[in-house]
């Protein structure tokens, strides 16, 4: 929801904690999730994720969430889908070059970032190219899966 974007950026810090909280809870529940099977969970998870993130962040469900690095402003609302900061076309009033009625996603992101503690300001990290196959899939499940795989790898190499 567009009207929520600024609010979410203002409360970026709390929302970021909430968001990380959801992720870590899911991670704790991973053994259970694995028993059920990630594939079976994809649909219901995506439904919840879409509604909550859609409402709060106007999330476009790219499946590779970077909200933590964007002051909780979804970069996929940028008409150029830039995932690494504002383009050179931002208007003097902070509005978007392409959509003059919309606040530049990255102006909002920078505001949001300043409401987060410095060590959590991942806006300074280069985000890699997007994998367009992941669009419309659950970023939460993907995170949990990735973390589990990493851990399994680490355990195996010990």
């Amino acid at each position: 929801m567009y009207s929520m974007r600024r609010w979410s950026a203002k409360h970026a810090n709390k929302l970021h904690h909430l968001y990380s909280g959801v992720e870590s809870t899911l991670y704790k529940a991973a053994p259970l999730l694995e028993k059920i099977g990630y594939d079976k969970l994809e649909k219901p998870f995506m439904a919840v994720e879409k509604v909550t993130k859609g409402l709060l962040f106007d999330s476009q469900s790219c499946g590779q969430c970077t909200l933590g690095s964007t002051g909780m402003s979804c970069p996929m609302n940028c008409p150029k889908t830039i995932r690494n900061g504002p383009c050179g076309g931002v208007r003097p009033n902070g509005k978007c070059e392409v959509k003059p009625d919309m606040d530049c996603v990255w102006v909002v992101a920078w505001e949001g970032t300043q409401n987060m503690p410095p060590k959590e300001q991942a806006i300074h990290i280069v985000q890699p190219a997007l994998d367009s196959r992941k669009k419309g899939t659950s970023a939460w499940l993907r995170e949990v899966r990735l973390k589990r795989q990493e851990k399994a790898k680490a355990n195996a190499s010990q």
């Binding site: 690494n84 985000q127 190219a129």
Partner: peptide
Amino acid sequence: PVFDLDCMSS
């Protein structure tokens, strides 16, 4: 518009 990458990822 394509924008598969952005200037940074490119």
